[in-house]
């Protein structure tokens, strides 16, 4: 019996708002208003959090910059070019696990996608290493067969050198030998802008046969080997720091925009809410007055 009553109640409930339309829209507007206000609170606090994280990331980045720049300049000075005999390539996409930060991750993934789709020969010979789940989610659909491994749990905490070292070791242990490669990441320019950049990777034979290697003194085979290993780790570290910094700054602006949009929506909804309320009051007054007039 009780059960039956409950069912009736459930049936009756959705019918109720339609009978009093003015009131119902008023209620639905206020529910909507409340939820938008909550969303604004969330985006605002996310903005605060990423602002704090961004400050730290930028401080860290300043210290990490010489590491990456130094490694890059080494390749430039020695004029190292990828060896022709080894067409295999490696692409490392530096992203993170976290979203809600504008086009940071899609930019990196799109860069790789365009490079691979433009040249079918490269598609065959290229392996991809995804750092962060976001690049995996985008790239696995198109280039699932090219993915070598995925490094996840990136982006919750600021990247450390040990993180980069582990990835570098994993690249070396993967058993994939590449002639040249690229680390693709977002280079942080200012709070409002970042740009996709890449760092070159080469294997040992490309370095030893470089025409201008003689600008460096006392290089033997083992020093070059050690340096290449270390520079892979340090370039990864640098690009991860750049990526983390651009991600936080981009999330900051994204959340700022979201809060602003939510604010606009709240204004609009409050206006319609007040208008509807006024309309309901006016209608009720008209009903009462006209009712009273009819009785006279």
């Amino acid at each position: 019996m009780f059960c039956h009553g409950k069912q009736l109640l459930a049936l009756a409930l959705p019918a109720q708002p339609t009978s009093q339309r003015g009131m119902a829209t008023l209620k639905s507007i206020s529910i909507r208003l409340k939820s938008v206000k909550n969303i604004q609170k969330i985006t605002q606090s996310m903005k605060m959090v990423s602002a704090a994280k961004y400050n730290r990331a930028e401080r860290d980045l300043k210290q990490a910059r010489p590491l990456g720049q130094g490694a890059k300049v080494f390749y430039e000075q020695a004029e190292i070019a990828p060896s022709e005999s080894e067409p295999k390539k490696l692409m490392i996409a530096v992203t993170s696990d976290r979203g809600l930060c504008g086009a940071v991750h899609t930019g990196v993934s799109r860069n790789i996608r365009d490079a691979l789709l433009a040249n079918p020969a490269e598609l065959e010979n290229t392996k991809i290493v995804c750092i962060g789940e976001k690049s995996r989610a985008i790239l696995s659909r198109l280039f699932g067969k090219n993915i070598l491994f995925v490094a996840s749990e990136v982006g919750r905490k600021p990247p450390t050198f040990n993180d980069a070292a582990k990835i570098a070791i994993e690249v070396m242990n993967s058993g994939y030998s590449y002639g040249s490669g690229k680390i693709i990441f977002n280079r942080f320019k200012s709070v409002v802008s970042y740009k996709i950049d890449n760092l070159p990777l080469y294997d040992k034979s490309a370095v030893t046969t470089a025409p201008k290697l003689s600008v460096y003194d006392s290089l033997d085979d083992e020093v070059i080997q050690s340096y290449l290993e270390f520079s892979l780790a340090s370039m990864l570290f640098y690009s991860m720091k750049e990526g983390a910094c651009s991600e936080q700054s981009s999330r900051m602006t994204a959340m700022d925009n979201a809060s602003k949009n939510a604010g606009e929506m709240i204004d609009k909804l409050t206006l319609t809410f007040n208008r509807t309320r006024q309309a309901v009051i006016t209608r009720e007054l008209i009903e009462i007055i006209s009712g009273a007039a009819a009785l006279q």
Binding site: G144, L148, F149, A151, K157, T160, N162, D163, E170
Partner: peptide, 23 residues
């Protein structure tokens, strides 16, 4: 600064291989 949180999933033939390696 001595921490590392990265985890790896190996991929084979377009699918993640089941074994997760930890360094």
């Amino acid at each position: 600064r001595d921490e590392a949180n990265v985890r790896f999933t190996q991929w084979k033939d377009g699918k993640p291989a089941s074994i997760k390696r930890h360094c």
